[in-house]
Write a protein that binds this DNA or RNA. Structure first.
Lengths: 114, 114
DNA sequence: CGGAATCCGGAACGATACTG
DNA sequence: CAGTATCGTTCCGGATTCCG
């Protein structure tokens, strides 16, 4: 099995590396929303209905730090923050799309209706 | 956000459903190996070098129960067990392939050599 | 050989309260 | 409005032991 290091963490497969960047419960839902236009924090909070503030801000920060989205602070009162896609983030969209389609296919096989 | 139930567990996205079936550290590595030929337990153990017996047997059982691979017991002494792909499992391979390619692309962007 | 059962620690995650 | 801080819980996964 191949392996490599990044930030002192050991990875064994490229797939594992993908999950470390855009895996977890909320990152793909965030990217999927932000792909078309700028979204505000409160919009994302409302749209991803089961996410906590802690998880949302944590995941937004990581996606920013890893270069998938960017954050714009508009200094009005009260403050406005917008999240938009970067080019790197855009490249993830087709992957998420494939996973979504496959998810629907699996659900159909398993007799689950959405 | 859409949501649905399966086995009394709540899912919010199709992607989440995919991960519940073939996510985690070891399931895709297992599927990726079994795709071409039958593999024995001890072969998988050796090939996925960092997996424990607990995790390997647990993941193999779940993949069997979920219909992605099948298990053949050959009653020799000592017993021989082989794992092979089902049709359902085969359908997951292109998805894993896409994720692998994307993983290599991300690694290249991040200056990681495999 | 090919597992299953049990125990356990740490990381991930959730709910709530609070803040610039 | 857009987050932090803190605390409590859950759960993934490793180590170990045992079995047909």
């Amino acid at each position: 099995m191949p392996q490599f290091l990044s930030n002192n963490k050991k990875y064994y497969t490229p797939v594992e590396y993908v999950f470390s960047k855009i895996g977890g419960t909320y990152k793909m839902p965030i990217l999927w929303r932000v792909k078309d236009r700028a979204w505000r924090y409160s919009e994302l909070k409302k749209s991803i209905s089961n996410v906590s503030d802690r998880m949302l801000s944590k995941n937004l920060k990581e996606l920013c730090d890893d270069g998938f989205i960017s954050k714009t602070i508009i200094p009005e009162v009260p403050v406005k923050v917008e999240y938009t896609m970067t080019e790197r983030g855009q490249e993830a969209i087709p992957i998420i799309s494939v996973l979504r389609d496959y998810g629907f296919s699996l659900m159909k096989q398993d007799g689950i209706k959405d």
